[in-house]
Design a protein around this nucleic acid. Sequence first.
DNA 1: TTCAAAACCTACCGTTTTAGTAGTATTATA
DNA 2: TATAATACTACTAAAACGGTAGGTTTTGAA
Lengths: 147, 147
Amino acid sequence: MKISTKGRYALRLLVELACHDPEEYVALKDIAESQNISKKYLEQIVPLLTRGRLLATNRGYQGGYRLARDPSTISCWEVLHLTEGDMAPVSCLENGIENNDCPRRSECLTLPVWNGLYKVIREYLEGISIEDIATNANGTGGDDYII
Amino acid sequence: MKISTKGRYALRLLVELACHDPEEYVALKDIAESQNISKKYLEQIVPLLTRGRLLATNRGYQGGYRLARDPSTISCWEVLHLTEGDMAPVSCLENGIENNDCPRRSECLTLPVWNGLYKVIREYLEGISIEDIATNANGTGGDDYII
DNA sequence: TTCAAAACCTACCGTTTTAGTAGTATTATA
DNA sequence: TATAATACTACTAAAACGGTAGGTTTTGAA
C-alpha cells in the first residue's frame, strides 16, 4: 500500500514547475538537480505526464518543460492516476466495480470496504491541486491537508 | 498502491469467523475451502493475527481458530496494520511524521499531502468493524461504506 | 497407547514490480 | 554545424508478491 517514486517524483516535478514563470521552459536537468532526483529516471516519468497533457515540451537548445494547464486545474488524483496507473486499492476494482469478473463478486462481503476506500482516497486527492501544494494552501502551517 | 492478498485474505477470514458461533473453533481447512484460498498460504497469514491477539487458537484434534475479541471491536485498520505492515502511503511517514529523517523534510511541499492521505485512509478503515462487514452494515445494499 | 487431525514453523521458488542505469537517436537553436 | 536539450528503448539488481513443500508439535479420541 505505497505510492511509488514515479508518482511522488511526478508530483514534485509539477509543483516545482508551478513555482516557475508559466511561460518558461525548464530543463529536466535543472529540476533533477534542485529536487535531487536522477535525471535519467525523470526522463522516463515525464512522458507519462506529456501524454496526459499535463506538460508542454520544447526539444532542442534551451528546451524543457512547462505546465500545459493552470496548476489550479491539475489535481493530485490526475497526476497519480497517470503515473501510478489505476489507483484502485484492490485489483478486483481495477476496471470499475461493475466490470469485476470475480466469481465471488456477488457474495464478497469485503468488496464494499475496498470500494469505499477507493472513493475516500479519490475524493481526497481530487480535492488538492498542484497550485494548492505550491502555495502551501493548507495554510495552517500544519502537517496535513484538511479539505 | 494496492492492498496485498495477505490483508485481503485476513479480512475475509475474520469476517467468516464472525459469522460462526463465537465459542466454536473453526479449522483452517474449512475456512480455506469455503473462501477458496490456499490453506498453506493462510497458515502463513494467521500467525500475524494470533500474535496481534485477534485470534484465539486451539491445536490438535478438533482444534482451529476463533475470534479473541468481539467482532464489533476489531477494526479493518487493525487487521490491515497487522498483515500489511505500516500502512503509510509513502515510506517517509513510516515511523510517524516526526521521526522522518529525510533531509528534504522541512522543505518538502508534498509531505503534507501524503500525511493527509494517510489520515483519511486510517480514519475510514478505523470506522469499519469486522461485525459491520459480517452483517453487511452499510445496509443500503449499495456497493460501498459511507461512514 | 496409538492414531489422526489439527496448528506451527521455516525454507524455498518462480514471477512481477521497483528503481533505476546506459546508450543512442532526434530535434532545435545559436 | 556544434551543442544542448528531449525521446526512445534495452537492460538490470534487488525487493516484494503469492504462493508451495515438508517437516514438527500438540491434542483428543478410539
